[in-house]
């Protein structure tokens, strides 16, 4: 996983509540058995005018000029400004994969769906929850100021902007630690392998049926 320390990035606004994971990455692209390459199909149905399918050459497709990410003004954006309940719907991790692959490393919204929020951290993407009013202020600012950028410092948990006060944000300690150092969760958890074994042994005594093998049983 890529570490996240300080991000200085152009901001793109997606002014729409309840953006669901089907919208972020439509299901036909979930057929891939890879983890990368989803960027060109991020928001596929909103971004292009034709129907997308896996393995297509996206460069030659007709784009929807109305869609915000097609506006040259936001080209190269790495911060996505969004509305309530961003990432609702399925558990597909393809959603943060697509956002990351496209170039977004940070998403700011008043609220996120739980599973999506969680998935972001595992993929080097920082989701930040800010007050509704602050999010609105940022939306206004993006619209007013061409080339509006934010500098997001995970270590100090602050967002800085050229005009306007610095903004503080919350992030859980463990998640911050992993993101700052690009640490893989599994390695961390395996440091507790003894505790897991102990738990397992006690559980096997208490609830042996949980350890019945499915393999041997035939219907």
């Amino acid at each position: 996983m890529k570490a996240f320390t300080v991000l200085d990035g152009l901001v793109a606004p997606l002014d729409r509540a309840n953006v669901d994971t089907d919208m972020i990455i439509p299901k036909q692209f979930l057929k891939s058995i890879k983890r990368s390459g989803f960027g060109p199909n991020l928001f596929d149905e909103l971004r292009y005018l034709d129907e997308g399918y896996p393995g297509q050459d996206t460069d030659s497709r007709p784009v929807n000029p109305e869609f915000v990410l097609n506006n040259p003004r936001y080209k190269g954006a790495s911060v996505l400004l969004a509305r309530e309940n961003f990432g609702c719907g399925s558990s597909r991790e393809h959603a943060p994969w697509a956002l990351e692959d496209f170039g977004f490393r940070c998403i700011i919204a008043p609220s996120f769906a739980d599973i999506f929020f969680n998935n972001c951290f595992k993929n080097g993407v920082l989701p930040i929850v800010l007050d509704q009013a602050l999010v609105q202020e940022l939306f206004d600012q993006v619209e007013r100021e061409q080339g509006f950028r934010l500098t997001i410092d995970l270590n100090t948990q602050t967002i800085k902007r050229a005009r306007g006060a610095a903004i503080e944000f919350e992030v859980e300690g463990f998640r911050k630690h992993c993101l700052l150092h690009g640490l893989d969760d599994i390695g961390q958890t395996l440091q507790d392998a003894d505790a897991i074994r102990e738990y397992e042994a006690a559980c096997r005594m208490r609830s042996p049926w949980l350890f019945d093998s499915i393999a041997g049983v035939q219907q």
Partner: peptide, 20 residues
């Protein structure tokens, strides 16, 4: 409850999940 693919890998490797 549902989990993402990184967690699928995490459960396979550790039989546990990091949860709040």
């Amino acid at each position: 409850h549902g989990i993402g693919t990184s967690e699928v890998e995490h459960v396979l490797a550790t039989q546990c999940l990091v949860q709040k």
